[in-house]
Write a protein that binds this DNA or RNA. Structure first.
Length: 574
DNA sequence: GCCGTTTTCGGCCCGACTGTTTTCAGTCG
């Protein structure tokens, strides 16, 4: 899978062109092409093999040739050419906040600066001030930028960012009069990680709201403070932007500030063609504001249905909204049960009864208790004897607790050779079987793929748990041919999990979309080890929504009877 | 370099804030 590699090459070309101050539009073309590679839900080599590279939006004649060249030869002449005269160490400096391409080129050419260390020295010695357009403040800003880049710059996971933003907006509401105050940006789009936090507020007194924002206890550093906009760095190094607009601009501002950037650019292009202008204050014909109070109005006047924030990535949602064929996405209310929940029998922290009651409290129709199997020793995996005792307890609980169906289950290891951790006759007794990889993550692609395929082919396995094993920001996804796994899963009716744990979100949105398109069934599960983890369902749902998934594909959005019928199918299909 | 209800050339999103400037360029989102 060379998608990411090619994306990086295109992005680097764009960086070089930016440094060399070549055409903005050409730079954008490379950035768009890079994004197109990242968003591609299948292997670019497969698209190339079919001769369909040019059907990818943003990939034209030239880009298609460059991709082909890279896949055939492993290099790209255009890349080498772009890099000429731009030392690699200089490219690293393009990510320093406050230091743009113009300044970078200036210090390189006039002062011979090639590295971050040299830049720092030049700023400290006052040499920077000698250059035209650069004063002492600028030098100070650059030093701060270097410091910021060194200590933060890490993207933060959704499950961390969301509680943080809820705290911040809550505090702001208490400190100052705001009509609206809510997260926008990638957080509202529920991306798996966010680079910064964007907050939108409406209210009459912009300067005062921004002032209050910069004085919040979490704020360590104020990067900018104007009448309508503030930018700060929190104690743990995360950038937070606040934007204040008048109430009548709420919809336009929310739309603008939610992004994504490429989604917004597309909208503004559409507006231009209609001789309209979209900005954060509204939609304008000439000087006259047509609308802006709600997002629905903004989309409507451009001829689009309202687009759910989770879809705003320029991955086809614009066209779908124009043609009134946006999907009705799966949502929290559609979920009827959690099919991956641990208990104290293995490494969970609550009893089965506690977990079941908590699931019932959430309004679920059913819940599956899926403790670890034998091989996961570290998690107190159950041998067959303990498994039987655990299942006995479940049978007793069924009599004690009504209003929710309790399914027997297991999260069973797929061993390195692809064999399963329980024998078939034991698996046949269990209502629902999730099979997961928990060891030998470093196997090569062929071994791993065959290993998982064996599990998919087992008539007893219903769900493949966290299919790639990734931990966001900690462990890369394992090498596996997901396309092959999905193809087989579509045939056997085996579901793939969308783990709602925010450290995992596995499958991710892009793969999940591919799976759904291929007709693979999905199971959105929390893999809860604590009672509170049951609440993580929202992250799994967001991931599925970002993958355009509707409730028909999601097995735990089905009524119990349908779910049981599907489980029966798994038992007879060999 | 891409792309088409301004179609094969001539466009390409829009505004806020900062710093160094005496009217605006650079950077950011």
């Amino acid at each position: 899978m060379k998608n990411q590699e090619i994306a990086q090459v295109f992005d680097k070309i764009a960086d070089c062109l930016e440094y060399k101050q070549e055409s903005q539009f050409r730079q954008n073309a490379y950035r768009r092409a890079a994004r197109a590679m990242m968003d591609l839900s299948e292997d670019v080599e497969d698209v190339y093999a079919r001769g369909e590279l040019k059907s990818i939006p943003g990939i034209g004649e030239g880009m298609a040739e460059k991709i082909a060249e890279y896949l055939d030869t492993g290099t790209m002449v255009r890349y080498e050419e772009a890099r000429r005269g731009v030392p690699d160490t200089l490219l690293l400096m393009t990510r320093i906040p406050g230091l743009g391409p113009k300044t970078l080129r200036l210090v390189h050419e006039k002062l011979g600066v090639n590295t971050i260390e040299e830049l720092e020295a030049a700023a400290k010695s006052g040499k920077l001030n000698e250059l035209r357009g650069l004063g002492p403040k600028k030098a100070e800003n650059i030093l701060r930028g270097i410091r910021l880049r060194a200590e933060s710059g890490q993207r933060v996971r959704l499950g961390v960012a969301l509680p943080l933003v809820e705290t911040i907006t809550g505090q702001l509401r208490r400190k100052v009069k705001v009509a609206q105050c809510l997260p926008a940006g990638s957080l509202r789009r529920m991306r798996e990680t966010v680079g910064d936090i964007d907050i939108l507020a409406t209210g009459a007194d912009g300067p005062r709201i921004v002032e209050a924002f910069t004085k919040l206890p979490q704020v360590r550093d104020v990067l900018g403070q104007g009448d309508t906009k503030g930018t700060v760095i929190t104690g743990d190094g995360l950038q937070v932007d606040l934007r204040v607009v008048p109430e009548e601009s709420y919809g336009a501002a929310l739309q603008y500030f939610t992004g994504s950037k490429s989604h917004n650019i597309r909208l503004r292009e559409i507006a231009r063609k209609k001789r309209l202008k979209v900005n954060e204050y509204g939609v304008f014909r000439g000087e006259k504001s047509i609308c802006g109070r709600t997002e629905e109005e903004v989309y409507g006047v451009l001829g689009l249905d309202w687009v759910p924030p989770v879809l705003r990535e320029d991955r086809g949602e614009i066209e779908a909204a124009q043609e009134h064929r946006l999907p009705r996405l799966v949502e929290q209310g559609d979920i009827r049960g959690d099919l991956h929940v641990h208990s104290k029998w293995s490494d969970g922290k609550a009893t089965i009864e506690q977990m079941v009651l908590a699931a019932k409290e959430l309004g679920y129709e059913y819940v599956a208790i899926s403790d670890h199997s034998l091989s996961t020793v570290i998690a107190k995996g159950l041998d067959v004897a303990r498994l039987h005792r655990q299942m006995d307890e479940i049978r007793k609980l069924r009599k004690k607790i009504d209003g929710i169906a309790i399914l027997t289950s297991t999260e069973m290891d797929i061993k390195p050779d692809g064999s399963l951790d329980y024998p078939d006759d034991v698996l046949a007794e269990i209502d629902i079987v999730t099979a997961s990889v928990h060891s030998a993550f470093k196997q090569d692609r062929r071994q791993m793929t065959e290993r998982v395929l064996r599990a998919v082919e087992s008539p007893h396995v219903d769900i493949i748990g966290h299919p790639t094993g990734r931990l966001i920001g900690e462990r890369e996804p394992c090498a596996i041919d997901l396309e092959a796994v999905m193809k087989k899963a579509a045939q056997t009716g085996t579901a793939l999990e969308v783990s709602a744990q925010w450290e995992r979100l596995d499958l991710d949105d892009v793969s999940c979309r591919r799976a759904a398109e291929m007709g693979v069934r999905l199971a959105i599960n929390t893999d809860a080890h604590y009672l509170t983890h049951l609440q993580y369902m929202r992250f799994g749902i967001a991931t599925a929504q970002r993958a355009w998934v509707t409730k028909e594909s999601v097995v735990n959005a089905w009524p119990l009877e349908e779910l049981r019928a599907w489980l029966e199918r798994a038992a007879v299909a060999v």
